[in-house]
């Protein structure tokens, strides 16, 4: 690795830089969402954009998730690159028709005449007692919709580089940010920093077990890996960063080496992204290479409850990850 100069930024500031830089280079980008202009977004991701780019490119919308998402699709069809903010990603359920029945399919249904260079981004807001309508991790919904790209960054640098790539990509991208990571600082390379879509990153190397985790689950997995290292278990943490397209080659290469797979994911268990990763890996790694049955560490199959002991029980915990790794080591 060449020594690239870096700065320490929060993930929110890194995302803000990505938007700012892309808006500077491409005048067709407009950003629309609730409280994003005057207020700068509830989590400051769009702070300062109104002053720099003005109210025609940075728009405080009515509370109309379906309309802003549909307008984003429409703007994309005629050559703009809209970025739609969903204040909390759970509200995508109101926009799902525009996103899935329109944005995801318009290119296909038109026989390739058009493309939809749209980004729909918003936070996953679990872990802080926001309760069942503000705490969902819904990446599986989007991965299941042909036509969408799905991104979930875990670090400030990845957030910046991937958001820039998402804006430049000609496809509709769902970009999921973890609210508890917004204030987390990380080193971000100076200058033009792009992270390619569909390329995983090994966040920690290890010979014994492969953990596949994205977004907030990466931090949890790294924490587990550090703890397990003290017991002599070397965990490799592979962060796909993009959930669709999935860098299955990177995952398969790691699992072929370790022979053990644990997938950590905060989404609900049934039909979840963790199941998808296990299934895809089985397509690529011969059964004979596995030393243990793959494990999924996920949220329980319930809505996310409010009270602390209940929310803690339902979301994957450090102990859950450690015990899953311990189980595959014993197999």
């Amino acid at each position: 690795m060449s020594a690239v100069a870096t700065r320490e930024l929060t993930m929110a500031d890194a995302l803000n830089e990505a938007l700012r830089e892309e808006m500077q280079r491409d005048p067709t980008i407009f950003v629309i969402g609730e409280d994003i202009a005057r207020h700068g977004g509830l989590f400051r991701v769009t702070a300062g954009l109104l002053d720099e780019f003005g109210p025609r490119r940075v728009i405080d919308s009515p509370i109309s998730e379906a309309a802003i998402t549909g307008a984003g699709v429409g703007g994309a069809l005629i050559g703009c690159r809209p970025v739609v903010e969903l204040q909390i990603s759970d509200f995508v359920s109101l926009a799902m028709d525009q996103l899935v029945n329109h944005g995801a399919k318009w290119r296909y249904m038109s026989g390739g005449q058009v493309s939809v260079p749209l980004v729909v981004r918003g936070p996953i807001s679990n872990g802080i007692g926001m309760a069942a309508q503000h705490s969902q991790t819904l990446e599986a919904w989007f991965v299941h919709a042909p036509g969408l790209v799905v991104i979930m960054p875990s670090t400030a640098a990845d957030a910046k580089g991937l958001l820039k790539s998402a804006i430049r990509d000609d496809n509709p991208v769902v970009f999921l940010e973890k609210r508890l990571l917004y204030s987390r600082k990380g080193e971000v390379p100076d200058g033009e920093h792009l992270v390619p879509i569909g390329v995983a990153d090994v966040k920690r190397e290890g010979r014994d077990v492969t953990i596949v985790a994205a977004g907030a689950s990466v931090q949890l997995s790294l924490q587990a890996a550090r703890q397990l290292a003290r017991e002599g278990v070397e965990v490799e943490v592979v962060d796909p960063r993009t959930l669709k397209p999935l860098d299955i080659d990177a995952i398969a290469e790691s699992v072929a080496r370790t022979g053990r797979l644990v997938v950590v994911n905060e989404g609900a268990r049934a039909g979840g992204f963790a199941s998808e990763v296990v299934a895809r890996t089985l397509d690529h790694v011969p059964l004979s290479d596995f030393k243990a049955t793959p494990e999924r560490v996920t949220a329980k199959d319930t809505p996310i409850p409010y009270a602390t002991p209940l929310e803690r029980e339902v979301l994957p915990s450090l102990e859950d990850v450690v015990s899953a790794v311990t189980r595959v080591m014993q197999d």
């Binding site: 007692g129 309760a131 069942a132 309508q133 809505p303 409850p305 409010y306 009270a307 209940l310």
Partner: peptide, 9 residues
């Protein structure tokens, strides 16, 4: 709501 809902529910 036995603690499931909280302030908003």
């Amino acid at each position: 709501c036995r603690g499931r809902g909280g302030s908003m529910h």
